[in-house]
Amino acid sequence: MNEALEKNMKYRSSDEAMIEIIDVHKWFGDFHVLRGINLTVHKQERIVICGPSGSGKSTLIRCINRLEEHHRGRIIVDGTELTNNIKNIEKIRAEVGMVFQHFNLFPHLTILDNLTLGPIWVRKIPKAKAEEAAMYYLEKVHIAEQAHKYPGQLSGGQQQRVAIARSLCMNPKVMLFDEPTSALDPEMIKEVLDVMIELAQEGMTMIVVTHEMGFARSVAHRVLFMDFGQIVEGNTPQEFFDNPKHERTKLFLSQILH
């Protein structure tokens, strides 16, 4: 890690809350997937969530932009509470970027059209301006030369970088990453993580569900460990990795770090 980044990473996030999650519960049928989650994410804070599969970490971040509905508790994103009000939901979704495990690019549109869809139709930005911005972000994820190709013609790593650029085009206040590198071939993971690190350097508020512990250690302000629908433990990366408090955390880390 270079020095500038290190300096940046030490920079404490602001005290202003960006996302407040208060006693959130969720069930899938009878399965109690989230059991009383409390979490406040500050502006410019970077949080990594890890935990075994089925622990509810993906469900938690999907609740933040209402891809899943929570059944009890409150979620407040940048001062707006998520309720059944569809206008509020659409407003929050426009402010919250989401990157999926399987990229979910639109295969019938070119890369450029993938990027400009949201700005043109949701933000009502003129096409020329949206394309200019899209090219800027493609440049940023080092993939500008692919702008006129279709997603199917790109490698997984490239597709995921396009997906990140697509979210950035909406000028989001928060970026959510749902296991962004899990579906990638090993040699492509780094190119995606590098883009995410660059994003972190610029002060983006990020919540990342991942098992990339190197990334967590170098980028996160806080690392949370989830198990059985609860946040078991949350701490600075240093403390979390070197001095885990909880038995389950220790077990998980021993399994994942070999």
């Binding site: 891809l67 659409e90 989401m98 139709w121």
Partner: peptide, 18 residues
């Protein structure tokens, strides 16, 4: 159509019609 396509469109803030 996969669920992911709906989710990707929704998470950009597109409404049902769009």
């Amino acid at each position: 159509m996969s669920r992911g396509q709906y989710e990707a469109a929704e998470s950009l803030g597109l409404n049902y019609y769009l």
